[in-house]
Design a protein around this nucleic acid. Structure first.
Lengths: 160, 160
DNA sequence: CCAATAATGTTCAATGCTGAACAATAAAGT
DNA sequence: ACTTTATTGTTCAGCATTGAACATTATTGG
């Protein structure tokens, strides 16, 4: 009876797989947080920096969308980073509402060091997995991302 | 020059794979949060419930370790859940320091409903991935978890 | 041109998580 | 037995994140 319910849920291989994925993510985050302390930044700031590194001149709104966080989040975090001299916010010349974001020289340097740390961590911990296995996993995850994003959009369209 | 740095980091297949994994986790969390609103619980509470479902009579400390969160976290969250009638905390008879945790009838019912929602979500979004691919991913992730956990333990042993 | 609607960023209260300091209890060392 | 050390749970201040309400600026429709 109660055993049936339990086994019904826990014997699903996909369920167990996903639990492992989530746990691995959590642990990776923990270790990354520790390794970033020497640069005095935390993973959320690193995510911002990496996106500015790749997409210079992006707006706060676009950045928030890429990071899957709220706009208010950016409004709180970015002024801090600006005070620390990592980034710069300049108003768009055409649209006076938007602020465009740029890395300073210092910010670029910190970003490169932090990305090196993160890459090294990933390489180190994933080195025992064969490359083609990693690629296959990436493809699965990218399909998953597309599925989930479309689901999120549907939900926000139909608030019924 | 700057291009070299950029390509050095972004051409690492394992790096890109991991970024996809992290993003998928974030999205899954977002969707799960939405689908759990009908039960009026959030993912952190569900994690607690699932662990109590499987390990009745666990202590707060053990639970915190399983969830990879601080003890203080449990001290804040569990009294809330107790007030909502989902769980019960009873002092251990032998060791007066520890509080042992149990699901109430209501808590068990909510847990089963929530697990059904989560399982359905995972089955739905992962259904397009072949089962053996899921299993292979789970094995990779479990190896990764072991690696990361040992790394965390080393760090906390050598605070030098 | 002017009103209505939309988009961008900010502020604020509420929530969750953390790490450090603390109180009570247990275990170990003497 | 008694002092010291370790463990368990609590409290608290600090920080990140969210969603709602808001001000400013663009865009659209008349």
């Amino acid at each position: 009876m109660m055993n049936k319910n339990q086994s019904l849920l826990w014997d699903h291989p996909r369920f167990r797989s996903w639990i492992a994925v989530a746990r691995a993510c959590q642990l990776m985050q923990t270790v990354l947080t520790r390794e970033l302390t020497e640069l005095d930044i935390k993973p959320p700031h690193l995510d911002i920096l990496i996106n500015l590194y790749r997409f210079e001149g992006i707006s706060q709104q676009e950045l928030a969308r890429k990071l899957l966080v709220g706009r208010s989040n950016m409004s709180m975090a970015l002024p801090q980073m600006e005070k620390r001299g990592l980034i710069e916010r300049r108003g768009d010349t055409k649209d006076k509402r938007v602020l465009r974001l740029y890395l300073t020289r210092e910010g670029r340097s910190v970003t490169e060091k932090a990305m090196a740390i993160q890459t090294a961590l990933i390489e180190r911990t994933l080195s025992s997995e064969p490359l083609d296995q990693c690629m296959a996993m990436a493809e699965s995850m990218e399909r998953l991302i597309v599925t989930l994003q479309s689901e999120i959009r549907e939900d926000s369209r139909e608030p019924a």
